[in-house]
Design a protein around this nucleic acid. Structure first.
Lengths: 145, 145
DNA sequence: CCTAATATGCCAAAATATGACAAAATCTGC
DNA sequence: GCAGATTTTGTCATATTTTGGCATATTAGG
């Protein structure tokens, strides 16, 4: 499982190394160092390819020209990109993503079970108090645990 | 699968190069660099010829005189045109398309699984927030995933 | 404090995007 | 149908970006 936080620096051309702990999980549990990163709200979301493909398989069966399908797929897939970790465990984050999420010098990797997020460090810092408030609020709605 | 966004510039006479990632997919998965482009909402829609033919096969089975069929097919097929990528991986976008979609300096390629869209960059930028709103809304209607 | 693992800076090589221009094709008016 | 104008196409050159590999700095673990 992906867990915890790691701060890494990102080079001018968008290259960043994935935390060793995450790399190890990809190797052992998923037997593949290919991941899909996708842009959501204020961060990138990274999935091992296997997990992501399950999702895509379902999407491909949706009626292709229905408005809801187009809106959904355009956003989700249009903001996704496949990354192969290189021999040093690094990936490249495209200029579009970096611009949209305002990635500057450092990024924060946040492990969340079967996926992990990548934040610009400043945005992550800003979201910290808000994150705690949201966590507090969420507790009333999590009935299953 | 086509995924992600790429910004390219388009020459005065409508020539533009297809993102390398897309070209590679055409070469490997589809073994053909022929694509069909047609008009869509505010963008062009591009299919590898194989995928387009699947679409046509389905269209042929639609009830031919139903108003919706005629409207759908007239627009989609009537606006379709075949493009062969040249040795540098470029295609030409006809003056009609460029005029209709107001293609200026830069265009954005948006990968969506078996097809990709081509937007004028300004229009894409304008549609960004709207796109996210639509995505949020669509999530309620996508029950299958 | 030492060692091993990890992260990252650096540079050269490869790939990619795109501008330029001439040749070929197409269109236009006569 | 023909001559000239315009557009499209093919090829090359080049700027830019991406990639691969190595070297060094940094961190974590014992």
């Amino acid at each position: 499982m992906f867990r915890g936080q790691y701060v890494h620096s990102i080079s001018d051309n968008g290259r960043v190394s994935i935390p060793a702990k995450f790399r190890e999980l990809l190797n052992t549990k998923y037997s593949s160092t290919t991941i899909i990163i996708s842009m959501f709200e204020n961060c990138l979301l990274a999935y091992p390819i296997v997990e992501w493909e399950k999702l895509e398989a379902k999407m491909i069966d949706l009626p292709s020209f229905k408005k809801e399908t187009v809106d959904f797929e355009r956003y989700l897939i249009g903001n996704a990109s496949e990354c192969q970790l290189d021999s040093e465990g690094r990936i490249n984050i495209s200029p579009v993503f970096r611009k949209n999420l305002n990635f500057k010098k450092s990024v924060v990797f946040v492990g969340i079970l079967t996926r992990f997020e990548i934040w610009d460090q400043k945005s992550w810092q800003k979201n910290k108090e808000l994150g705690f408030k949201k966590f507090q609020k969420s507790r009333d709605h999590i009935d299953e645990i």
